[in-house]
Write a protein that binds this DNA or RNA. Structure first.
Lengths: 344, 344
DNA sequence: CTGAAAGCGCTTACAG
DNA sequence: CTGAAAGCGCTTACAG
């Protein structure tokens, strides 16, 4: 979008409202001595002419480094921590403001507040953005980059960053099949999340290709939480056909499964193989260390920041969805079914 | 520091330099048509009069929310993640800029850059700040709050936030003693860190009060890393007097010990009790879940932000060191020595 | 309530 | 190089 040669000034707005510059200035500064009628007329004209205050224009100067908002929908977890890490490391000149959205504000207030505070772009991690919020960001001229949105239909228009989730689900399941497992369960993420759907399809594709279609009772979906792993793992152990391996939707769920196994006296990997997803810090710190599908989360954070900066600079981006490669990382939580202990 | 009634304007500087306002303006805007002599005279006078540009003043307006820099000295880990979490949640109106210091810039450049970018205060987590950096922040009028600095002597003047580490070390060790342990090892943090020293003293005090002074070979210090736990745990298992319990300097180290134990076939808590420190997210996700000394890390992040904002507003703070209470959280990684399994 | 007028802080084209 | 002068965008005390 080419910038218009001159930005709107108070004089423009005053002329179109048929009032003096002084009156417009008063409205802007929230003075009391303006009639409600005049005030609302001026306010709508300010909006219409897309008036940007002097201080905001100054803040847009090259001298002031950009700030980018990284919005979380919940507390930092091992997954979002990695993305934030990558965003923070990405660009020395882009300050990353981390915040947790409370949804207390209305969409317009929220977006305008961000613009007024000097944000140049917004990166939303696993958020559920409404159509109003997307519209408000657009009106505030704030570009948006989403990472793993939880509600696909609404956010389809936004620029997004993700990873090859289908391939990840496929390779994780193939790894377990190659070890000799046949009763492989999927303990995944929220059914509405696109990333979860892709992983599930990868799992199903691998199972079908191996001639052992997934048993319906072996597929469970739920939030990406540790407790899901504890509960889901326990539920799977109660099945008549107990799985010998569980492919999980994220490392946190996998750690929950590890705990469910320990509580039952089920040994990992001797009695049960477990595969995580993400390769967050906790994967390496698990006992046994987790075999997991690595998502390049830090790189994804970095790509999101660089994409956001390009959008903020008015550049076009080639692709509306950047997808980075996943990779299987084999550690100690997987083995052939019935394998003997003895690993290091 | 009471703000002077009026900030320096170009006119003031022009008068004291004996040049016109126009010339000063040219210097500020980096125009070429100013003689080097005049330029350097004006520049030093701008510095001397502490001139703040209009845009910077505007950025200081109440309308623009404060931004606070949270400086990490390394990648986000479970400990610093919790503090960041608390800082982000603390004040709706204070934007938290997270960054990892690279030390590429000289101290003055770094501090002035932060001030120019609109930061109002700096919070440093487990950093090693030099005297130059402290001085540069002070000259840039940026208040500093430190959390668990790694080098105590240099940072003694700074306002700090911490927790009752001595009490934490004491209560953790007393818990193990009460369970019946006598051979209790300490696998702690860096010897130079004040928080580590306090925990070690608490451990020693408890041991001495119980009449079982700590064996020197049972005390090891090192970085707050997972690998320290793996290596340190293995080293302790090789001792002639193998400990029956290990009190660790942080949850990450404790998870390393869990893994060292698993690799040796040592069962936790039946053969070995393990106590962590911090109560980060990974403590709950460990298998078995960790008994640990909870530091209120989120609260510490929140207190740091509120203190930083007060200092930025020119208020005096009552105390140069705020200390929050630690608390023992008993989970599944501790039991009486030689206890039988059977817990849930 | 409203706006003409004075004023503030800054920038810039231009005469010297 | 330098600065007087014109001008820009905005604010505010005050007259009506």
């Amino acid at each position: 979008m080419p910038a218009s040669p001159r930005r709107t000034t108070l004089a423009t707005v005053a002329a179109s409202a048929g009032v003096s510059v002084a009156t417009v200035s008063k409205v802007l500064n929230g003075r009391g001595d303006v009639s409600p009628v005049t005030r609302s007329l001026v306010e709508s004209l300010l909006e219409e002419h897309d008036y940007v205050s002097l201080s905001q224009r100054r803040r847009g100067d090259a001298a002031v480094p950009a700030t980018i908002e990284v919005e979380l929908n919940a507390d930092l977890n091992p997954y979002s921590t990695e993305i934030v890490q990558g965003a923070v490391r990405a660009e020395a000149d882009a300050a990353i403001v981390v915040s947790i959205r409370t949804n207390a504000d209305r969409a317009g207030t929220w977006a305008r507040g961000l613009a007024a505070a000097g944000r140049r772009a917004v990166i939303a991690i696993t958020s559920e953005l409404t159509a109003e919020q997307l519209g408000a960001l657009s009106r505030a001229r704030l570009p948006l980059v989403v990472i793993d949105p939880l509600n696909m239909p609404q956010t389809r228009g936004a620029v997004s960053v993700g990873s090859t989730n289908f391939a990840g689900g496929l390779v994780a399941t193939q790894h377990l099949l190659a070890l000799g497992h046949r009763r492989i369960a999927y303990l995944g993420g929220p059914a509405t999340a696109a990333c979860n759907q892709a992983r599930l399809h990868g799992y199903r594709a691998a199972m079908e290709a191996a001639g052992v279609p997934a048993t319906p009772s072996h597929v469970r979906e739920g939030p990406f939480h540790y407790q899901e792993g504890v509960k889901g793992g326990a539920a799977l152990f109660d099945l008549p056909e107990v799985p010998t391996a569980i492919f999980t939707g994220c490392d946190e769920i996998a750690l929950g499964v590890l705990e469910a196994a320990r509580a039952r006296g089920v040994r990992v990997p001797e009695d049960l193989s477990v595969v995580g997803f993400d390769d967050t810090q906790v994967a390496k710190m698990a006992s046994p260390p987790l075999t997991t599908v690595r998502q390049p989360l830090r790189e994804m954070g970095g790509v999101a920041v660089r994409t956001a900066l390009r959008l903020a600079a008015g550049e076009r981006v080639d692709s509306h969805h950047v997808e980075l490669a996943t990779e299987l990382v084999v550690r100690g939580s997987t083995a052939a079914p019935g394998a003997l202990p003895g690993r290091s």
